[in-house]
């Protein structure tokens, strides 16, 4: 359900699998937005969920107010998914006809699929479901880009770059550079900027 009186609040969900750098990405994103003057609330699931489980961050981006760290069902404006199955999982709970999705194409098999008890939905099924459950979606292999850059974990930064490329949020390269300069070594800083640019260029 969309909030009646919260048109000014943007709700973004970042999702993925434990170990994909989800938390780091949501903090970086929120840091940029706080610097830009927004009131940001992030709700995160981590701890045990990290051990191969689904990881999800809810970002509430408001001009003025602290929001609930949990987005209401059906209330996402943007979903950024580091893994396609997790994109679907979030869509089925927080999706709505107006939602935009950016999803990594590279799958990570859940244990039930590895053991053969369950099937991973086919690429075609996933794309069809994306089409039916979103207003707009972008899918590309961010992990492959990360691997080319030397580390698959960079896929999280690639996705932030892509998000900037969509213009769905008021973020840009300059803000990203400023944010990561606070914490990263010069070498990693350059690598992360490359990943950001690569992601940005995936959005046409």
């Amino acid at each position: 359900m969309k909030n009646k009186n919260s048109g000014l609040t943007k709700n973004l969900i970042l999702t993925g699998v434990g170990g994909q750098g989800n938390v780091m990405a949501s903090r970086a994103l929120a840091g940029m937005l706080v610097d830009a003057g927004y009131v940001v609330t992030i709700g995160e699931t981590f701890g045990m969920s990290q051990r191969g489980g689904s990881v999800m961050s809810h970002l509430r981006i408001s001009p003025d107010a602290v929001k609930s760290p949990q987005i209401p069902k059906g209330g996402a404006d943007v979903i950024v998914a580091l893994e396609p199955l997790e994109a679907l999982r979030v869509l089925t709970v927080y999706g709505n006809p107006g939602v935009s999705l950016i999803s990594n194409a590279r799958s990570i098999d859940p244990m039930g699929v590895i053991t053969g008890e369950r099937d991973y939905p086919s690429e075609e099924t996933i794309h069809e479901a994306f089409a039916r459950l979103t207003a707009r979606c972008w899918i590309f292999d961010a992990t492959a880009i990360g691997l080319v850059l030397g580390n698959p974990v960079l896929s999280n930064i690639v996705m932030i770059g892509a998000l900037a490329g969509t213009g769905l949020l008021p973020i840009d390269r300059r803000m990203f550079a400023k944010e990561i300069r606070k914490t990263l070594s010069p070498e990693k800083y350059a690598l992360n900027l490359k990943a950001f640019d690569a992601g940005c260029s995936m959005i046409k």
């Binding site: 969920s49 191969g52 489980g53 089925t92 999706g95 859940p110 039930g112 939905p121 099924t125 479901a129």
Partner: peptide, 15 residues
Amino acid sequence: EARKTAAMLPPREQT
């Protein structure tokens, strides 16, 4: 549509 999609998703259990 969401319900049907959710039904085909394998859970991601902790390991």
